[in-house]
């Protein structure tokens, strides 16, 4: 029987027992990491963005050190790659891709959407970013520069979008509800 045909839960138990026996990871460490992985979703990134939109000092800390900012609001980051945050402005729009594979800020956005790993997205994001954005319905104001961020190495990158107009007075929870995962990768921009 090949590894692919093995019952997943039995395989997990066998590997966990071996890791414990060899002193590499305890069952409780594995359970903690499993829970953190299951909890990771675009909702975590949305909480960070909404907080940054409503708290200027948090925004500054988030841009300086994404990992520390995520931990500050209770997102487990221990043992994970450093998180960098790219700020969209009236001058610059960021678009994240990993042309080599599928590096994705999983701690704050969860599993990457299927298209993020597709050969088409990876090739076109660096070659024709504006064509790709247009297909997503993302039309940038004239004069806005596109900065494609090819995530090739030790960092994981998320985008801090611009707060949409028409949201004055909204609290962080309501603002977080506006955000989709694509907004934090830069294929889309949030709107009201």
């Amino acid at each position: 029987m090949s590894l692919l045909e093995t019952d997943g839960e039995r395989l997990f138990e066998a590997v966990s027992a071996l890791l414990a026996e060899r002193g590499i990871a305890t069952p409780s460490e594995i359970a903690t990491r499993r829970a953190a992985t299951d909890a990771a979703s675009p909702g975590q990134g949305a909480r960070m963005v909404a907080r940054a939109w409503t708290d200027a000092s948090f925004r500054a800390r988030m841009l300086a050190d994404g990992t520390a900012a995520a931990e500050e609001i209770g997102i487990p980051m221990r043992g994970l790659p450093p998180l960098g945050v790219l700020e969209n402005t009236a001058e610059t729009h960021h678009l994240v891709v990993c042309t080599l594979c599928s590096c994705y800020p999983r701690a704050v956005l969860g599993y990457p959407p299927f298209w993020f790993k597709s050969a088409g997205y990876r090739a076109r994001a660096v070659r024709d970013p504006r064509g790709l954005l247009a297909e997503w319905g993302t039309h940038l104001a004239s004069g806005v520069k596109v900065r494609v961020v090819d995530s090739t190495a030790d960092y994981r990158w998320m985008v801090l979008p611009m707060r949409p107009a028409g949201t004055d007075g909204w609290d962080a929870a309501r603002l977080a509800g506006l955000l989709r995962e694509g907004d934090m990768i830069g294929v889309t921009v949030p709107g009201v």
């Binding site: 520069k145 596109v146 900065r147 494609v148």
Partner: peptide, 15 residues
């Protein structure tokens, strides 16, 4: 990089 695109656009990469 591609002989196409819009002047001013950039690709930012970890190297």
């Amino acid at each position: 990089l591609w002989q196409q695109g819009v002047a001013g656009d950039e690709v930012l990469v970890e190297l």
